[in-house]
C-alpha cells in the first residue's frame, strides 16, 4: 500500500473559530472555578482511597503480594495522584509517586515482598489530608527512608 496523505477537514477547529466564543482567559478561569467547587468532596475522598489500597494489601496475606494485586494498586494509586496533583497536596503526591515507582519495579523484577508496600501505605497516611501536618524536615526524613527502601530492592530512581 502506498502512503496516502490526506488534508483533513478539522470539524473541531471550524466550530471553535465560530463567532460568539469566550477568551482563553475566561475559559480557564471558569474551568478552574468549576474544579475548585469539587475540592471539598474530592479531597475528602482521599483517606478512603488509601484505605482501599490497604485493603488490597491486607487481602494478600502471608507477607506476599502478587503482580495482579500490585497492578490493581497502581490503578487505584493513579486516582489518588489525580486528587493530590489537582488540589495541591505535594507531599502526598510525592509519596504516591514513590509508591508507583516501587510497584512498577516490583512487577518488573518479580518481587513479591509485601513489606515495602506496607511502608509506603503508612507514609501516605502520614501526609494524607486530615492528618497532623508534618514539619518539612520530617517529610524529608520520611522520603529519605522511602529512598532507602527503593535502593534496598533495586527499584525506582535509586534502583
Amino acid at each position: 500500500m502506498a502512503v496516502k496523505v490526506t488534508p483533513v477537514p478539522n470539524r473541531l477547529g471550524t466550530l471553535l473559530r465560530k463567532p460568539g466564543g469566550i477568551s482563553r482567559d475566561m475559559a480557564l478561569a471558569a474551568a478552574g472555578h468549576n474544579v475548585e467547587r469539587l475540592r471539598e468532596e474530592f479531597v475528602g475522598a482521599i483517606p478512603g482511597e488509601i484505605a482501599a489500597l490497604e485493603e488490597l494489601l491486607a487481602a494478600c496475606g502471608a507477607g506476599n503480594v502478587s503482580p495482579d494485586i500490585l497492578d490493581a494498586m497502581l490503578r487505584r494509586a493513579g486516582q489518588i495522584l489525580t486528587l493530590s496533583g489537582t488540589y495541591g497536596y505535594d507531599p502526598l503526591d510525592t509519596v504516591v509517586k514513590r509508591f508507583c515507582d516501587l510497584a512498577i519495579g516490583m512487577i518488573e523484577k518479580k518481587i513479591g515482598d509485601a513489606a515495602p508496600v506496607g511502608v509506603h501505605l503508612r507514609a501516605m497516611r502520614l501526609v494524607c489530608p486530615g492528618a497532623p501536618e508534618l514539619p518539612p524536615d520530617e517529610i524529608a526524613d520520611m522520603l529519605a527512608g522511602l529512598s532507602r527502601v527503593h535502593a534496598h530492592y533495586g527499584v525506582g530512581r535509586e534502583g
Partner: peptide, 11 residues
C-alpha cells in the same frame, strides 16, 4: 488537536 494544518496519513 483542532489545528487545521495536520494531514492524515494512511499507510
Amino acid at each position: 488537536a483542532a489545528r487545521p494544518d495536520r494531514a492524515f496519513i494512511d499507510a
